[in-house]
């Protein structure tokens, strides 16, 4: 009888007390399975657009207040911004006057020695902002560029340039980052 009671007590302890006592106290942070869980958000000084990025490895580079720019980099060496080599990734976002497609074409022309790997094509973000994207390679410095322009309020376009060492056409991480860009009015 005594052993049965001991069995019942240990069973209750394991089935009820332990789960109720310790399990809820573990893993109380943000739900890691949610989209973009753990990603930070950078917002421009004019509060017109915002960019999501995973930090680390991404780091925000301080920019002059009021210019509406956001610059993010992945340092060539973990945790270091000035290791001498160009960053693995660099994202620059800025607001420019004009429409999305002409802005994109002008930017392609501006990159010297550019080889267009993907012609300008329509692009839609997760928050349903509409624009265009293109992929070019700069033969002079062996760098790749993914360009995105999105329509922004006030006859402006948001120009986003991602510079990297590998061809971004199959880079799903860069694609996920670009699709998370949100232009005012912000999606909740």
């Amino acid at each position: 009888m005594r052993s049965k009671a001991r069995v019942a007590a240990s069973f209750l302890f394991c089935c009820v007390a332990l789960p109720l006592g310790i399990a809820p106290s573990a893993g109380c942070g943000e739900d890691g399975s949610a989209p973009y869980a753990g990603w930070d958000t950078a917002e421009d000084s004019g509060n017109v657009y915002r960019v999501r990025f995973l930090a680390p490895p991404w780091k925000r580079v301080p920019t002059t207040d009021g210019d509406g720019r956001i610059e993010l980099v992945v340092p060539p060496v973990f945790g270091s911004l000035d290791a001498g080599a160009p960053p693995k990734f660099r994202l620059e976002a800025s607001l420019v006057r004009g429409l999305a497609l002409p802005t994109l074409q002008a930017e392609i022309a501006r990159i010297g020695g550019a080889l267009v790997l993907r012609d300008p094509a329509p692009f839609t973000t997760l928050s349903s902002d509409i624009g265009f994207t293109a992929v070019v390679a700069d033969r002079t410095n062996a760098r790749f560029y993914q360009l995105v322009t999105l329509a922004a309020p006030g006859d402006r376009a948001l120009l986003v340039v991602v510079q990297l060492n590998e061809d971004p056409r199959n880079d799903l991480e860069v694609d996920a980052m670009l699709r998370a860009i949100d232009v005012r009015p912000f999606a909740e």
């Binding site: 394991c14 680390p56 490895p57 992945v74 973990f78 991480e173």
Partner: peptide
């Protein structure tokens, strides 16, 4: 690896 950068994160858990 995330964005061509290696990471190592601790994984801790409690349960039944």
């Amino acid at each position: 690896q995330r964005f061509a950068t290696t990471f190592a994160d601790a994984l801790l858990g409690l349960g039944v």
